[in-house]
Design a protein around this nucleic acid. Structure first.
Lengths: 366, 366
DNA sequence: CTGTTAGCGCGTTCAA
DNA sequence: TTGAACGCGCTAACAG
């Protein structure tokens, strides 16, 4: 027995020898089938046999070779997370939610950054055919990616946060239209009539729906709004482009009294732009953001925004994918999570002159 | 031939049939070995044979099963990225660097968030013994993790950014000591004598080295510094704790004229604290940050900071691990990348009263 | 240049 | 309750 242990520690190549199921079987004096059964808790062994197997496994520091198990069972127990950019904290939170959920389920998550490059996306998806992964979660697929079509009917794929309505894929997100409509209703209730939107050049479904609600609510309330009040910031919602677009907006005559930004970073830019132009927020201008993941409570005024349950978005897509993986065929086509309009300091009633004036351009947090 | 194709599209279970190397061989009328050779470009086939193989593979939409290949070659072509928190943009950038590099090398990267939980870390490392991964990059290991010892001599592991000097593992980082010393020299050259440091409660090697340099430079320059000038912010360098610590510092009598923060978020907090207390930056107080990944150029004053090459840090650790994977035994034990002190607006000469006073508490970016 | 064959380590029949 | 034998799909000897 000792000899076996010593052998087990012998270096092969430049790496230590790793015990296989065969070694364990030999050490325990049983067959590999018995070891396998015990490890996978299939069938019951005689207590004595079980003990012998366990001791042998412990002695040899046995770990099942997943490569072999996966080949045998024809599954990789790996899922793909395909995201445009981990650096974005919004995606980072979703990814954490996905990872935590799948790890608890015994899966590993492979991360692919596409950088919005369709070729990178195609490369990632190819891992499905190569059996490197059992399924994938797509965060913001390159719309019109011709490659995607080949995979969607063949592999379990779920879209998270953004999705292509033309694709027949299940997705999880918030109700962007309602959220946007809520913001508009709120601003109008505050007395605002000249409401601008800083949207984005990207073509995400969230962007489209938020814009749609913006226009529709205005129409419903019979508020005429100049086309110049609808502007588009950079694809990635950069702080700088938010500031620049806001400045253009505020130079208009008449200028908007409220700006609805489709991201917090944009909203931060808008607030800074306003300050720079001598306008007070919210006294002279109301600003609303979206997401509630960045900068919202760093400087005063704290930003009014729509909070998205990012972590749960990731969790929900993970669970949805897990269902598909297990051929639970009644998986929903769509999972909508609750958003929440969080009213903070960057919005107020129009011409709210009664309140004391803040001398500090940007107030600071206590 | 057509029959084969139709067969290939037949659904098995609820998923499409996927061609194996055997199917391709059959379709092309050659042996599996020939197909394998062609795919792996080992040995040369007769042009005609090669063509037949290629056509067969194309017709059957063949993709090699990595599970099988990996089992055969006893490698997973997967590496682990073990990080405390992807949400931190500093780590996110490093992760992107690692991922890009390894993807180009034909590897996939599995991401494990440990949340600084030793158990999660241990679980991640276990994937090495289970042959789910060939190696790992550790971003900030839970110091004193007893489990780690079992793996470091058995598997290729590299530490990135943070490292445990007691562990015999290669690592890549910047020269934190020199960087910190440079900042101190710079501040002293500016005329500052009362220099405080906002460090962190965490026990990272970077934190230790930066503190060490802070103290040593002070000693070398024979500058007496009260112990109260050295304070510790939260483990995660939160904005809020930076602001609170700075306030305490600025309430001291005499107060520091410069604060060296070991992260940009902390520096941002310090600047806001100063403004709140009616102090101008840099006229009344100089502030230095570290990392150059967040908030440094969002609001004026733009923050003077030490830039770390995060993406390259990731890239370098990936290359280092790749070398270890290939048994290149002359791999360096340590890779130090260049940092850079970036002087912006938050630092200035002491008592710089000649310059015009900024009325705005926080100036804004053009 | 090509084919035959033997495993990689495991899970799973089918018998006993 | 246990064991023998097979095969997942692939690569690498070896033989021709």
């Amino acid at each position: 027995m000792l000899r076996v242990f010593i052998e087990a520690c012998k270096v092969t190549a430049n790496r230590l020898f790793m015990a296989t199921i065969k070694d364990v079987a030999q050490e325990a004096g049983v067959s590999v089938a018995t070891v396998s059964r015990h490890i996978n808790k299939k069938g019951i062994l005689r207590p004595e046999t079980a003990k012998r197997v366990e001791e042998a496994a412990a002695k040899l520091a046995y770990n099942p070779n997943l490569l072999a198990r996966n080949l045998r069972k024809n599954e990789s127990r790996v899922i793909l997370i395909i995201s445009p950019n981990v650096t974005n904290p919004y995606y980072a939170l979703i990814i954490t939610g996905i990872g935590d959920t799948f790890n608890a389920l015994g899966y590993s998550a492979v991360l692919f950054n596409t950088n919005e490059d369709p070729e990178r996306e195609a490369e990632a998806l190819k891992m499905l055919s190569r059996r490197r992964a059992d399924g994938a979660i797509l965060m913001a697929n390159c719309c019109g990616n011709v490659n995607l079509g080949k995979y969607i009917h063949e592999f379990p794929i779920v879209q998270c946060s953004e999705y292509d309505p033309a694709l027949d894929l299940p997705h999880v997100s918030i109700d962007n239209y309602s959220a946007s409509a809520e913001v508009m209703a709120y601003l109008i209730k505050l007395g605002h009539q000249r409401i601008a939107m800083i949207s984005s050049e990207n073509n995400y479904i969230s962007t489209q729906l938020r814009a749609e609600a913006y226009r529709n609510v205005l129409k419903e309330k019979q508020i005429e709004s100049p086309e110049a009040f609808f502007v588009k910031a950079s694809r990635d919602y950069s702080f700088k482009s938010g500031k620049n677009r806001a400045k253009e907006l505020l130079n208009l005559d008449p200028r908007p009294t409220a700006i609805f930004c489709i991201s917090d970073t944009l909203a931060m830019g808008a607030i800074i732009a306003a300050h720079e132009m001598g306008l007070r927020v919210p006294e002279d201008l109301s600003v609303v953001g979206f997401d509630d993941v960045e900068h919202t409570t760093m400087l005063h005024p704290f930003i009014t925004t729509v909070a998205q349950p990012c972590y749960d978005l990731g969790k929900a897509s993970a669970n949805l994918l897990y269902q598909k993986l297990n051929h639970t065929d009644d998986t929903p086509k769509e999972v909508i999570l609750e958003h929440k309009l969080i009213i903070r300091e960057s919005t107020g009633t129009l011409l709210n002159v009664g309140l004391p004036h803040q001398d500090q351009m940007v107030r600071v947090v206590n």
